[in-house]
């Protein structure tokens, strides 16, 4: 039984903003299916009542003072940009079906 099919891979690729060729999609589906098949190994272990570990640091997040520090000069901020206009980054016009969120 396959764990993941082509349609799943294409859905996930859209979420991740990756465009896959037919060949890539087929390969990725096969690879992910194998990897997820291996991962099923975890089902052997009873994890009931086990707290998940998100982090090994047993501390609280540090808090920073609310004091402004050095900022990037605007021309440095956009220095690596593939396209910019003044000190703003430029991207192709947002289309109607690409609205936020």
């Amino acid at each position: 039984m396959s764990r993941i099919d082509r349609e799943d891979v294409e859905r996930v690729a859209r979420l991740a903003r990756l465009r896959l060729s037919d060949e890539e999609a087929a390969e990725m589906t096969a690879d992910l299916d194998r990897i997820l098949g291996y991962v099923d190994l975890l089902e052997e272990v009873s994890t009931e009542g086990v707290e998940p570990t998100a982090h090994v640091i047993p501390l609280a997040t540090p808090l920073r003072d609310d004091v402004p520090a050095e900022e990037l000069p605007p021309e440095v901020a956009v220095a690596n940009a593939p396209a910019s206009e003044g000190t703003a980054f430029a991207v192709p016009k947002v289309l109607d079906d690409e609205a936020e969120g």
């Binding site: 920073r64 990037l72 605007p74 901020a77």
Partner: peptide, 30 residues
């Protein structure tokens, strides 16, 4: 640690964190 501002020119208040530059990390404002 970039200043909160209003109405300034674009990208005049950024740090590597605001721009999500590779290697930048968040630290919470107390």
């Amino acid at each position: 640690t970039a200043a909160v501002s209003y109405g300034d020119e674009p990208n005049h208040h950024t740090t590597p964190v605001c721009l999500a530059l590779p290697g930048a990390l968040p630290v919470l404002n107390g």
